[in-house]
């Protein structure tokens, strides 16, 4: 086992049933993600990049193959173990932030820690300060701009100190300037916190700022 490899996909296949037809989305994906990597997963719309990201993050199942994290195969994990794995090891940020509207920015960030039964409200404040929102701790999501909401979502993803951060089109809803801010933030997370980052994007220009790019086309890398 190579200890430098954090996440690995071996011959990963995934098929969907769509309008009565079987659609092969992932066709034997082999992927190795070293610890500390900062990777962009590129591909056109419908190429299967989000599906691959969801499989790697245990948000979706696969038909055959294996996903290995820190040398441990993940296919045998129970639903409860999967949830715990996501809670302790992974961070997710999606195109839509889906913050809880009734909770303040600080409360939203601290929420995943409370699933673990921990009160990490001071850490939540630190993270919001770190993403440049120290003045918005008590603001509700609807009082924040799109870029600010996405930064809160990023802070939320970091609250349990994940080893791997998976992002799915995080800049998809933002203008160019806000998108660059988010990318700079991802770069800081990678360099200052040492978090491995795998980002799905279809934006070639933004992908160019990553250390490494992987291209997915018609279910193959």
């Amino acid at each position: 086992m190579n200890s430098k490899i954090l996440l690995e996909a071996r011959a990963l296949c995934k098929t969907y049933e769509q309008a009565g037809e079987r659609v092969e989305v992932l066709k034997g994906i082999d992927l190795a993600l070293p610890r500390g990597d900062f990777v962009a997963l590129l591909g056109s719309s419908g190429s299967g990049k989000s599906t691959l990201l969801h499989c790697l993050g245990l948000l979706d199942t696969w038909d055959s193959g294996e996903v290995i994290f820190e040398g441990r195969p993940l296919s045998k994990l129970s639903e409860k173990e999967q949830a715990r794995f996501r809670l302790e090891k992974l961070g997710f940020v999606f195109q839509f932030h889906h913050l809880i509207p009734e909770l303040s920015a600080a409360e939203n960030v601290a929420l995943p820690a409370s699933i673990l039964g921990q009160d990490r409200s001071s850490r939540a404040r630190e993270l919001l300060d770190w993403v440049g929102l120290s003045h918005k701790l008590k603001s509700f999501p609807w009082q924040l701009s799109g870029g600010e909401q996405q930064r809160v979502a990023l802070a939320r993803a970091l609250i349990n100190d994940p080893v791997l951060l998976l992002t799915d089109e995080v800049t998809g809803n933002l203008d160019r300037a806000r998108s660059k801010e988010i990318l700079e933030l991802l770069r800081r997370i990678h360099s200052e916190l040492g978090t491995t980052i795998l980002s799905v994007t279809h934006d070639e220009e933004l992908a160019a700022t990553y250390d490494r790019r992987i291209r997915l086309s018609e279910g193959r890398l």
């Binding site: 949830a83 302790e88 997710f92 999606f94 839509f96 939320r156």
Partner: peptide
């Protein structure tokens, strides 16, 4: 559903 989906994604189990 979307808010719950995100919470499920970050680790909220079915039991929880």
């Amino acid at each position: 559903d979307r808010e719950i989906a995100v919470l499920r994604a970050v680790g909220l189990s079915r039991g929880q």
